[in-house]
Amino acid sequence: MNQPPTTDEFVKGLWRDNPVFVQVLGMCPALAVSNTAINALAMGLATSFVLLMSGISVSLLRRFIPREARIVCYICIIASFVTVVDYAIAAISLELYRSLGAFIALIVVNCLILGRAEAFASKNTVGRSVLDALGMGVGFTVALLSIGIVREILGSNSLFGIALFPDGFQTWTVMVLPSGGFFAMALWLLVVNRIKERQALKEPAQ
């Protein structure tokens, strides 16, 4: 139970157990606020912050929290950090705050965070929990960003708010609408699963 932290705790969230593309967790923000790269990045970072802080707290308090009351305590901790993020974003940029809308508050119910608290942080040392949360957070952010980039380029002809093609590019309105989130997500799943399939064929011995 008290193994030393290994790099694998960090790396697994990036690819092998990527929260969005492999575990398919936290779909609500992944689909809803990935309409531009900026929104996706902000959402990814906000979620990662909550993931990291709640991971540290849960891991620190794991001997203090009795089994029977753990869900209440986890949710309380997660909700507090989400509130912190909520205020922080409003203080940083009101415009970003408006475009993320209700989805900041909904980080509370992102099953990725509660899932990591329950499955990992509550059983492991702070060091390992930090690595795990960072890996999952980076994996989540990268996944959101890759969806957001596709949607913003096709839907708004820009990337991080900077116009891309000079003039006359036909924007695909559907990509900034909610359905575009599903299409972009499906395309990435296709790519990721294809690569995973290839890898599995190459190393059958594992």
């Binding site: 929290i65 029977e68 901790i77 507090s80």
Partner: peptide
Amino acid sequence: MYRAIVGIGALCALLI
């Protein structure tokens, strides 16, 4: 159980 819930609640309230 009380200690955990109330304690964590108080810490969270302070943070917020």
